[in-house]
Amino acid sequence: MIKKVFVKKVQQSGKEISQKQDVVAIEEPLEINLKSNGGKIFPVSVTMRTPGNDEELAVGFLHTEAILFSRKNIEQEIPSNLGFNWITINLSENFDPNIEKLKRNFYTSSSCGVCGKESIEAIHQTRRIPAEIVDIEVNLETLFSLPEELYKVQKTFQSTGGIHAAAFFSTDGKLISYREDVGRHNALDKLIGAEFLKSSKEAFFLQENILLLSGRASFELLQKAAMAGIQMVCAIGAPSSLAIETAENFGITLIGFLKNGSFNIYTNAERVKNLG
């Protein structure tokens, strides 16, 4: 979503000043709540996001924070309760997570003060392992093509220049889905949430999708990728040291500085074919 604003445009080192209409990405808070099967509502998180796809954002966030593991964990009706800048997701009758424990152990990003080793160990403790691990291989030329394919559909970024994107591709380079948001972690939660809501599996994993990030690869994005079982993460920008450590710990192929003709492979290069 975008908003029209008026700006003074300064050019030619201040010699040329004009007033023009511009567009910016909208940023508003979203409060995410859970409703237990006993009827009690628990506030889980408040995130600053671009309005739209809030249901996907909520369930994607709840999955990557190890609260939801399957579409069957929540009621069929989505959203359960949706208001202005808040959403409540109803848990299904046969699913009763220890919400108080989740609240005590909750963290959202590498900026929250949790040290790297504790953060990675927390993911190990909460992440479920798929019954069948499907490994993937991707051609070199396929990877080179991904940034351009994402840019073609980034309509909000093209109009505002101030928004992040995350996209899933098949191993042959076909775009599966993408989402945009002012927050890079929100864009990924929306993307994962969209696939989560379509899944009918007992345990939700995205083992066969390539994830492309429009910016840098931070720890919280690799944490979310690990929780969703993603095996290959590509970023247009740079990874952080903890992102690399997380990728190494969970067997994720991490690629950074991806553009047409070049990229860096930081972990598990064996999944990239035709390296020479």
Results as ranks from 00 to 15, higher is better:
residue 2 I to S: 14
residue 2 I to V: 12
residue 3 K to Y: 05
residue 4 K to Q: 07
residue 10 V to C: 08
residue 14 G to R: 02
residue 17 I to V: 15
residue 17 I to L: 14
residue 20 K to D: 06
residue 22 D to L: 13
residue 26 I to T: 12
residue 27 E to T: 08
residue 29 P to A: 01
residue 32 I to C: 05
residue 36 S to T: 15
residue 36 S to W: 01
residue 37 N to G: 00
residue 44 V to S: 06
residue 46 V to I: 12
residue 47 T to P: 00
residue 49 R to Y: 02
residue 53 N to P: 00
residue 55 E to N: 04
residue 58 A to I: 06
residue 59 V to E: 03
residue 60 G to T: 01
residue 60 G to C: 03
residue 60 G to A: 08
residue 63 H to T: 09
residue 63 H to A: 00
residue 64 T to M: 04
residue 64 T to I: 02
residue 66 A to F: 07
residue 67 I to C: 10
residue 68 L to A: 06
residue 72 K to Y: 05
residue 76 Q to G: 13
residue 77 E to A: 12
residue 78 I to L: 11
residue 78 I to H: 04
residue 79 P to Y: 07
residue 80 S to R: 12
residue 80 S to A: 12
residue 80 S to L: 05
residue 81 N to I: 15
residue 82 L to S: 11
residue 84 F to C: 07
residue 87 I to H: 12
residue 88 T to M: 13
residue 89 I to T: 14
residue 89 I to S: 04
residue 98 N to V: 04
residue 99 I to Q: 08
residue 109 S to P: 03
residue 109 S to A: 10
residue 109 S to H: 10
residue 114 V to Y: 15
residue 115 C to G: 03
residue 116 G to K: 04
residue 117 K to C: 01
residue 120 I to Y: 01
residue 122 A to N: 03
residue 125 Q to L: 10
residue 125 Q to F: 05
residue 125 Q to W: 07
residue 125 Q to Y: 00
residue 127 R to F: 00
residue 128 R to T: 00
residue 128 R to C: 00
residue 133 I to Q: 03
residue 134 V to S: 06
residue 135 D to W: 08
residue 135 D to I: 01
residue 137 E to W: 14
residue 137 E to V: 03
residue 138 V to P: 02
residue 141 E to R: 09
residue 142 T to E: 04
residue 143 L to C: 06
residue 148 E to I: 13
residue 151 Y to R: 11
residue 152 K to G: 01
residue 152 K to E: 12
residue 156 T to L: 03
residue 160 T to G: 07
residue 161 G to S: 14
residue 162 G to M: 13
residue 164 H to N: 13
residue 165 A to I: 04
residue 167 A to W: 09
residue 169 F to K: 14
residue 175 L to R: 12
residue 176 I to D: 09
residue 177 S to G: 07
residue 178 Y to Q: 08
residue 178 Y to T: 12
residue 180 E to L: 02
residue 180 E to G: 05
residue 184 R to V: 02
residue 185 H to N: 07
residue 186 N to S: 15
residue 186 N to L: 01
residue 188 L to T: 00
residue 189 D to T: 02
residue 189 D to C: 08
residue 199 S to K: 15
residue 200 S to R: 15
residue 202 E to P: 10
residue 202 E to R: 15
residue 202 E to L: 09
residue 205 F to K: 05
residue 208 E to L: 10
residue 209 N to I: 01
residue 210 I to P: 03
residue 211 L to P: 00
residue 212 L to I: 08
residue 214 S to A: 11
residue 217 A to S: 13
residue 217 A to G: 07
residue 227 M to F: 14
residue 228 A to N: 10
residue 228 A to R: 13
residue 229 G to D: 07
residue 231 Q to H: 08
residue 233 V to M: 09
residue 235 A to K: 08
residue 236 I to P: 00
residue 237 G to K: 07
residue 237 G to M: 12
residue 246 T to L: 00
residue 246 T to S: 01
residue 247 A to W: 02
residue 250 F to A: 07
residue 252 I to W: 02
residue 253 T to M: 05
residue 253 T to W: 09
residue 254 L to I: 04
residue 254 L to S: 08
residue 256 G to S: 14
residue 258 L to I: 01
residue 258 L to R: 06
residue 260 N to Q: 14
residue 263 F to P: 03
residue 267 T to W: 03
residue 270 E to Y: 11
residue 273 K to L: 14
residue 275 L to G: 09
residue 276 G to R: 15
residue 276 G to D: 12
